[in-house]
Design a protein around this nucleic acid. Structure first.
Lengths: 228, 228
DNA sequence: GTCTATACTACGATAGAC
DNA sequence: GTCTATCGTAGTATAGAC
């Protein structure tokens, strides 16, 4: 509740610094010495704010997940047709990832990092997992509702979520490779808007139900063929 | 050329072991001690096969990229309509990622890992990068050809490549999260086939040109709306 | 080609003065 | 709440015997 920005109240500052470093080099690649130096403290002082490295890590991860979840939950709660709600959800996710450049990398790393020490840290680790699960379950429900309502093709909601994560989190975490492909920055306002647009169009034509009828007919999508 | 499987000819064995470890824990998370133990050698013996840790890493990475490129290049070289060639490319990529379970994680990590020491290793690092660039340039060209031929919507080829990477590499690297979402293994024959199918259907309807006409009309996709 | 032994640095973490 | 000092371990890498 207190603290605007990141006052000398070291704790927030440590989290900020650690977030940037963990995003860039991953859990094992960051030393507490480096964190302490960057925040302007001695190494030992960190242990007065966090029990150890892994608690610091999960605190950072939980903060990122909480920040993103806080932006996505209202979107899911709001009304509207499934297609529009999904678009707003994707847009909000992209905005969240683009605003905090470290988020996407940190998340992508966390997803791949099953080897981060979880021992004796169940509370922090499970809290982060719970936030993530709740967020993903929300969009899965939206997809299922859209399918049931006949707005979406009868896709697998799990696979679609995987595709959405890949198309957003991976994209904004792709760093040099992504910038090389795009021929410019990933995070400029134009690039972010373009990403939204490309994804929106892909989903509008790729996810929309083929026939106006409500109960989807199984053969309608399976039989689709390329035009040329 | 020699060596079937991985004979006592240590070098291949080291690469195999290192590949699995780097994929699981990343560059900084793996110690040479661990690699040596797993391959059944003393720590120092590794230095007779590789100049150091970073060379070992780039050798591993180059091998993975080469393996995947070798499977994708023939697909691009073969003829066929753009839509069918793209589908075969995606299928081949998925097969390659699914066959060698470590590949996807290693690749995803490599993409995010701009901090892997590149000093004094330009040759190995650039070789790996060159393989990757060539592979990606191939599919970009295919996308552009498909757009020019009127088979695909006028998408951004760069963004579409990003989406394809996210939908494939991320998916097979997603580990516990992905398995939790799918409710089962990522790499079973069924799950792999299902991933291909979901992606194929998404691309068929999401990437196909909207109108039979060949020169795509700009308004046709922009004006698209959700049905329900 | 593999081994033992070793050098040097950095790591996470703790103790205790201020 | 931050500091210095220190512990024990593990990191990459090298030298040299076998």
């Amino acid at each position: 509740m207190a603290s605007f920005g990141a006052e000398p109240g070291s704790r927030e500052k440590i989290l900020d610094v650690a977030e940037a470093l963990f995003a860039r080099r991953g859990y094992a690649g960051v030393g507490l010495r480096e964190v302490a130096d960057a925040v302007g403290l001695g190494k030992s002082s960190l242990f007065h704010h966090f029990r150890g490295k892994s608690q610091l890590y999960y605190e950072v991860l939980g903060r990122v997940l909480g920040r993103i979840g806080a932006r996505l939950d209202p979107v899911l709660a709001a009304g509207g047709a499934p297609g529009e709600r999904l678009e707003r959800w994707v847009d909000a996710l992209i905005d969240a990832l683009a605003e905090q450049p470290a988020s996407a990398r940190l998340l992508l790393r966390a997803l791949v990092e099953d080897e981060t020490p979880r021992e004796a840290l169940r509370s922090e680790a499970e809290r982060a997992e719970a936030i993530l699960d709740a967020t993903l379950e929300g969009v899965r429900r939206l997809l299922r509702e859209g399918i049931a309502a006949g707005a979406f093709r009868p896709v697998s909601d799990a696979h679609t979520v995987q595709t959405l994560i890949g198309a957003t989190v991976y994209h904004f975490a792709s760093g040099e490779l992504g910038e090389g492909l795009l021929g410019g920055p990933l995070l400029s306002a134009e690039a972010v808007a373009r990403r939204k647009q490309e994804l929106r169009e892909l989903l509008r034509s790729g996810l929309a139900a083929a026939s106006p009828g409500h109960p989807p007919s199984p053969a309608s999508t399976e039989g689709r063929r390329w035009r040329s």
